[in-house]
């Protein structure tokens, strides 16, 4: 029952209607078809692509870059954010730099990364890492700053040193903010990986999509886009699954008005 009641039937029907409209318009005109091949054809290429070794290789390349950049940035940005949030002087030292770099679109850094790292994996990972760092960093700093002072005093009266307080109290207390940053960066990471792959070429879903467009296999291009979309959707669901497990305490506490 639960599963059925969660499905948004009107939304699903309107989506299917849209696909149907696409299908008949594509079939009705040669011109439209060259831009928007029929959905049925896209699905057919999608199915044949999924079983081709080539696309799996592209998918794995994208996934590998995504995970490396995203996880590294999570590690760096959370640690840095906790230090900058806790030590006022450290934040003062970097505030101007952060405020200057943060609003800059991260794709603008692609040429810099190419200049420094050349064209290849390292550059893609670096750009992804760079872009993901900001939301995580800013949210972590916010989280640390918003900690209930009584919690820190609790750590102190129990004789905890500064580092223990950071690890045992500040990190878990700031976790809801950190998770928000991680969720934002998840989408950003995928954008940066595919964009950089289009620039770098050679492998990855970004490259595949652009390459199919250039070789005029439009159905394959759309199939590639669908694969990226599904990848993004899957990663997001996975994230929400883990978030639900790890943050159950926070939902409960918020509902009771305790946080």
């Amino acid at each position: 029952m639960r599963v059925f009641s969660r499905i948004n039937l009107p939304g699903l029907l309107s989506f299917l209607a849209l696909l149907f409209l696409w299908e008949i318009s594509a079939r009705s005109s040669q011109v439209i078809q060259s831009y928007f091949p029929p959905v049925s054809e896209i699905i057919r290429s999608l199915l044949s692509l999924i079983f081709s070794r080539e696309v799996v290789a592209h998918l794995l390349a994208t996934l590998g870059r995504f995970l490396t950049g995203y996880l590294l940035s999570a590690l760096i940005a959370v640690s840095l954010g906790i230090l900058l949030g806790h030590f006022r002087f450290a934040y003062a030292l970097f505030e101007v730099l952060i405020e200057f770099l943060r609003p800059m679109p991260s794709v603008a850094m692609i040429p810099v990364a190419i200049l420094l790292l050349g064209i290849g994996n390292a550059m893609i990972v670096a750009v992804t890492l760079y872009a993901c760092t900001w939301p995580i960093l800013i949210n972590t700093i916010d989280g640390v700053r918003n900690i209930e002072p009584t919690l820190i005093d609790t750590g102190r009266t129990f004789g905890l040193g500064r580092w223990k307080i950071l690890k045992e109290i500040i990190l878990p207390a700031a976790m809801p903010y950190i998770v928000t940053g991680l969720r934002i960066s998840l989408a950003i990471a995928l954008i940066l990986v595919t964009t950089s792959e289009m620039v770098v070429g050679g492998s990855g879903l970004g490259f595949f999509i652009l390459d199919e467009e250039r070789s005029l296999s439009t159905t394959n291009m759309y199939a590639g886009i669908v694969i990226v979309a599904v990848l993004g959707y899957g990663l997001n669901r996975l994230f929400l699954f883990f978030e639900g497990k790890a943050m159950a305490w926070h939902r409960g506490a918020t509902a009771r008005g305790l946080l």
């Binding site: 209930e148 009584t150 919690l151 005093d153 609790t154 102190r156 009266t157 129990f158 004789g159 109290i169 878990p172 207390a173 976790m175 305490w249 926070h250 506490a253 305790l258 946080l259």
Partner: peptide, 21 residues
């Protein structure tokens, strides 16, 4: 600084408990 053989139970005890534990 906080003496090691003494603990304070805070007036706002609900804010002092660890919601994640």
């Amino acid at each position: 600084g906080p003496p090691s053989n003494l603990v304070l139970v805070f007036q706002e005890f609900n804010k002092s408990l660890f919601a994640w534990r």
